[in-house]
Each structure stands twice: as C-alpha cells, then as structure tokens.
C-alpha cells in the first residue's frame, strides 16, 4: 500500500524534465506532471475554495495555480512531495490575488487564512472517506434535489442563474441549496463516523 502512494514520479532520478523554455516538454516530463497533478488537484482546489469563499476568486486562483505549477515544474525537486509543494504554490497565488484586489473586494485576513489552511490540512486525513461518502449521499437525493444540484453545480452556473433557468425565486433556490448542502454534510458525517470510531 505504501509503495502505491508514493508521490515521487517513477524513476525520477533518471527522467529528463525536457525543454520547457522552448515549450516542448518531453513526454516523460508531461506524464509525470499529469500524473501528480491529476492525483492532487482536487485537494488543491478544496484548499483554495476554503480560503477564498467567492467562487470567481477561487476559480481564478485555481487557474493561476495550475499555470504556476506548470511553469515551475521544471524547477520542482522531485525528491520532495508534490502536494505540499502544490499547496505552497497555491497559497502564494492566493496571497497575490488578495493583494491585487485588496482595494476592490473583501477577503479574510491572513491569520484566518492560515487557520483555515491548517484546518483543511487536519481534515485531509479523512478527505478520501468524505469523498466516497459524498458520492453515496448524492445518490440518495430525491429527484427534485438531484436536479437542482445538477443545475447549479453540474451546469457550472451561479445559484442566481440556476434560479432563473428553473423559473424559481432566488430566495427559494438559496434555501433549497442550503438545505441540500447541510443534508449532504450530515449524511457524510453519519457515514464516516463509524469508520473513524473503529
């Protein structure tokens, strides 16, 4: 099990990184990056989403983080773990974004961002269990709620836009989504608690 969870690229000591300056990275380099990024991108996204509650901000920073990771990939020390490095890059992008728009928007202060980051880290211990539980809980939604979730999240639109598309008052959609999210969290907690206690 441990062998399968190593973050190091296979044969990283001999694999050339390729010429990223010229925009023609080697296949090996691309493969290594793709594998590691694929494995960890959801966690990076979760981290950004927690410190930047605005969806547009989080999306922008996830974009910038993806770009930054690729740009810096050639200098990544492959004897190190990928996820801490990726989260470190994400954190820098969060701070850059916050500094850039600080006069236009309100953000959490840096202390709270740090606290949130630590909490995300602490909870990541059971992140996989949560994800598995969430899939099961989504399957238990009734048809109306499932449609609303699909409209809102699967459609990649805001709750306001989803309300327009469904022809329902925004306040009604907000309340329904809040209820569904809370119900999903309760469901996830119930499903993972026995395993945590075991």
């Amino acid at each position: 099990m441990q062998d399968n969870t190593s973050d190091r690229p296979p044969d990283s000591s001999s694999a050339p990184l390729g010429d990223t300056q010229s925009g023609t990275p080697s296949n090996e380099s691309v493969d290594q990056f793709v594998q590691l990024f694929a494995k960890h991108q959801r966690r990076v996204h979760a981290y950004i989403g927690a410190v930047l509650p605005s969806r547009n901000d989080a999306d922008d920073v996830m974009q910038e983080t993806s770009i930054a990771l690729w740009r810096k990939w050639s200098s990544f020390d492959q004897s190190r773990e990928f996820l801490p490095w990726a989260c470190g890059v994400a954190h820098i992008e969060v701070l850059r974004h916050r500094r850039k728009y600080a006069t236009q928007r309100v953000y959490f202060n840096e202390n709270l961002m740090q606290d949130i980051a630590e909490e995300v880290l602490a909870q990541s211990e059971i992140a996989e269990l949560r994800s598995e539980a969430l899939v099961a809980c989504l399957r238990r939604l009734n048809e109306a709620d499932r449609q609303l979730v699909e409209q809102r999240y699967g459609g990649g639109v805001t709750a306001l836009k989803a309300a327009e598309q469904l022809g329902r008052p925004p306040s009604t959609v907000y309340k329904a989504l809040a209820r569904i999210r809370r119900g999903l969290l309760d469901c996830v907690r119930r499903r993972i608690s026995p395993e945590l206690r075991g």
Partner: peptide, 16 residues
C-alpha cells in the same frame, strides 16, 4: 465551515 465548504467545493469540482 471547512467541512461545509468542503461539500460545496466537491460539488463544484466539475467546473475545473
């Protein structure tokens, strides 16, 4: 908050 936002971002993940 982190738990609840975690549910939200997981649902939102398809956007990426």
């Amino acid at each position: 908050y982190v738990e609840q936002i975690g549910v939200h971002t997981s649902l939102d993940w398809s956007v990426t």
